[in-house]
Computed example of a mutant assay.
Amino acid sequence: MTTRVVLVSPATSPELREARFGGGGSVDERGAARARAAAGSLPGAVRTLISPSARCRETAAELGLHGLDAPELAPLDVGRWRGRTLDEVGAAEPEAVARWLADPSGAPHGGESVEDVCARVGGWLESAAQVPGRTVAVVEPEIVRAAVVHALGIPAAAFWRLDVPPLTATELSGRAARWNVRLGSPL
């Protein structure tokens, strides 16, 4: 049985451009227009899942996707840094930011570590492998990174080296606990 999982990254938002941690804000008009233009471009799926962030819900709606909320695919929990920009946190806590970016087991913000999110998403991906057919999920970029880290069995230290542009699809296909990855196809 082959399983296919298509992970769609959401449209742009002001928070994305500001490098704001877990801002949870809405997509901007340009991102919404790009998503509407891409509606119908995704393959059919046996199930559609949507991360609980506003950006993912709005992107899914603009793409014409109706799906189930997927709390297991929630964005990385950045604890007390939530809502702040990388520049703000970097100025206030430079050592903590450096440690967080260098150490996948670190969570100086009090939320999840990169290893934690990779384990959470890896567990979800293995359960998704039991569902035949195609799953489409609209998720934040860090969830795409975590899935790729798990699927390829690469170290969590590679997490920050994976770029996930807005409105791209990353497809994972697998059978018998072996995954292949097709990265970042534009919608």
Rank of each mutant, 00 (worst) to 15 (best):
R30K: 06
A32S: 10
A37H: 07
A39Q: 05
S41C: 09
S41I: 09
L42G: 13
P43T: 12
A45D: 02
A45C: 02
V46G: 04
R47N: 03
R47H: 01
T48G: 01
L49W: 07
P52A: 14
P52D: 05
P52W: 12
S53G: 09
S53W: 02
C56E: 00
R57C: 13
E58T: 13
T59M: 09
E62Q: 15
E62I: 11
L63E: 03
L63V: 08
L65K: 00
L68P: 00
L68Q: 01
D69I: 08
D69R: 07
A70N: 05
L73H: 00
A74Q: 06
R80K: 11
R80N: 06
W81N: 04
R82H: 11
R82W: 00
G83Q: 05
R84F: 10
R84C: 08
V89F: 14
G90P: 11
G90W: 11
E93Y: 10
P94M: 15
A96S: 15
V97S: 10
A98G: 14
A98S: 15
R99L: 15
W100T: 12
L101A: 15
A102Q: 02
D103M: 07
G106R: 12
P108D: 11
G110C: 13
G111V: 06
G111K: 00
E115I: 09
D116P: 07
G123M: 10
W124P: 07
E126T: 08
Q130Y: 05
Q130I: 03
Q130F: 08
V131Q: 01
P132D: 01
P132H: 05
R134N: 06
T135N: 02
T135Y: 03
V136S: 05
V138G: 04
V139S: 11
E140Y: 05
E142I: 13
E142A: 15
I143H: 05
V144W: 00
A147M: 05
V149Q: 12
A151K: 10
